[in-house]
Simulated scan of single mutants.
Amino acid sequence: MIYAIFAVTVLTVLIGLIAVSARIISVRNGTVPVGYFKLMQGEDVPEVLIKTGRCYNNMFEVPCLFYVVCTLYIVSGTESLAGLAFAWTFVVLRSAQACVHLTSNKVKYRMYLYGGGVLCVLLLWINLLIERV
Score class of each variant (00 low, 15 high):
Arg110Ile: 05
Phe6Trp: 07
Leu124Asp: 02
Ser95Pro: 00
Leu11Ser: 02
Arg94Trp: 04
Asn58Met: 01
Ser76Gly: 13
Lys108Pro: 02
Trp88Asp: 01
Ile5Val: 12
Cys99Ile: 12
Ala82Cys: 03
Lys51Cys: 11
Arg94His: 05
His101Gly: 07
Val32Arg: 04
Gly115Asp: 05
Arg28Leu: 15
Thr31Lys: 15
Gln97Trp: 09
Leu84Glu: 04
Ala22Tyr: 11
Thr89Ser: 10
Val62Asn: 09
Gln41Tyr: 07
Leu72His: 03
Val48Phe: 02
Gly16Phe: 09
Leu17Cys: 14
His101Tyr: 11
Val13Cys: 08
Val91Thr: 04
Ser104Gln: 13
Met1Val: 06
Arg110Gln: 09
Val32Met: 06
Leu113Gly: 04
Glu43Phe: 10
Val107Gly: 00
Asn127Leu: 12
Ile24Ser: 10
Tyr3Ile: 05
Gly42Lys: 11
Ile50Gly: 15
Val20Trp: 14
Val8His: 10
Glu61Ala: 09
Phe66Gly: 04
Glu47Lys: 14
Thr89His: 00
Ile5Cys: 03
Leu93His: 04
Thr31Asp: 14
Glu131Lys: 15
Gln41Gly: 13
Val91His: 02
Ile130Pro: 07
Val69Pro: 00
Leu72Lys: 00
Val68His: 07
Val13Gly: 02
Ala98Gln: 01
Gln41Lys: 15
Thr89Trp: 02
Ser26Met: 08
Leu122Gly: 14
Phe37His: 07
Ala85Glu: 06
Met111Ala: 15
Gly115Pro: 01
Val32Trp: 05
Trp125Ser: 12
Cys70Lys: 05
Asn105Trp: 08
Asn57Trp: 11
Ile74Asp: 00
Trp88Ala: 01
Tyr67Cys: 03
Ile25Arg: 13
Tyr112Asn: 10
Val62Asp: 10
Ala96Lys: 07
His101Thr: 11
Ser76Lys: 14
Arg23Thr: 06
Arg110Asp: 02
Arg23Phe: 13
Val62Cys: 10
Ile2Trp: 08
Tyr36Glu: 00
Tyr114Asp: 02
Thr78Asp: 04
Cys64Lys: 13
Val34Trp: 06
Leu65His: 09
Leu93Phe: 00
Leu81Ser: 10
Ala82Asp: 00
Thr89Leu: 12
Tyr114Phe: 14
Asn57Lys: 14
Phe60Val: 07
Asp44Val: 14
Gln41Ser: 13
Ala19Met: 13
Glu61Phe: 06
Ala82Thr: 02
Tyr73Leu: 02
Tyr112Met: 14
Leu84Phe: 06
Val10Tyr: 04
Asn127Val: 07
Ile15Gln: 09
Phe86Met: 01
Val69Arg: 02
Ala87His: 01
Met40His: 13
Glu43Thr: 13
Asn57Cys: 15
Ala19Asp: 12
